[in-house]
Amino acid sequence: MNPTTNREETLRQWQAREAEVRAKLAAPGVASMDDLKAGNGMDFLQRIWDGELPSVPIGETMDFIPVEGEPGRIVFQGTPGKQHYNPLGSVHGGYFCTLLDSAVGCAVHSVLPQGMGYTTLELKVNLIRALTEKTGPVRAEGKVIQVGNRIGIAEGRIVDADGKIYAHATTTCLVFPLP
């Protein structure tokens, strides 16, 4: 199979998955602390993805959604457009950072036991190449490296449908009991 056919098939799969997830998401909002405490981290994320809890407002603002997830690995997908551009004519670094912060942070969240929360302490992002409106959909995959009682570490990358990498990130998260 030639590379163009592979890309087209990957794009069809990605677009179909995005449509499937978007059809289930609830309107944006903020879940309650009781909802957050009701189960473990993966349970909470799954309830958002199943439309039982409000979808995340930043996802609507930046136009990206979660498309895959399992404990320790979370994938978000978005399509950069001109609304994400900086004055230089490419996608602003904040788009990269927000997409990656969501992926790596949720990867950490996905392995937390019931009653525990997290917050990002540090996010380091390496922008490898520019995103533009012509890039098409991209995915940010976050994977846990280690999560302990106080600290969680994860890494992530943004790739296009060809598997070309656009950015890499690492995060350190503070893990704490929910109030």
Score class of each variant (00 low, 15 high):
M42L: 12
M42K: 10
D43P: 14
D43K: 03
F44A: 02
F44W: 05
F44C: 02
F44S: 03
L45A: 09
L45N: 12
L45D: 11
Q46W: 10
I48G: 04
W49S: 05
W49R: 08
W49N: 15
W49T: 08
D50Q: 15
D50T: 15
D50K: 15
D50M: 12
G51R: 09
G51Q: 12
G51F: 14
E52Q: 15
L53F: 10
L53W: 07
P54G: 11
P54Q: 06
P54H: 05
P54A: 10
S55N: 04
S55K: 00
S55C: 01
V56R: 08
V56L: 11
V56W: 12
P57G: 05
I58H: 05
I58E: 04
G59N: 10
G59E: 08
G59P: 01
E60I: 05
E60T: 14
T61G: 02
T61R: 06
M62W: 13
M62D: 07
M62N: 11
D63S: 11
D63L: 03
F64D: 07
F64R: 07
I65E: 01
P66V: 11
P66A: 14
V67L: 00
E68A: 08
E68Y: 12
G69E: 00
E70M: 07
E70W: 00
P71G: 11
P71K: 07
P71I: 02
G72P: 11
G72T: 12
G72W: 11
G72M: 12
R73I: 06
R73A: 00
V75L: 06
V75A: 07
F76M: 14
F76D: 01
Q77E: 08
Q77W: 03
G78C: 06
G78W: 09
P80G: 13
P80E: 06
P80Q: 13
P80C: 04
P80L: 10
G81I: 13
G81R: 14
G81V: 09
G81P: 14
Q83T: 04
Q83H: 08
H84I: 05
H84V: 03
H84F: 04
Y85S: 08
N86G: 02
N86R: 06
N86A: 00
N86I: 02
P87F: 03
P87A: 03
P87R: 01
P87G: 00
L88K: 02
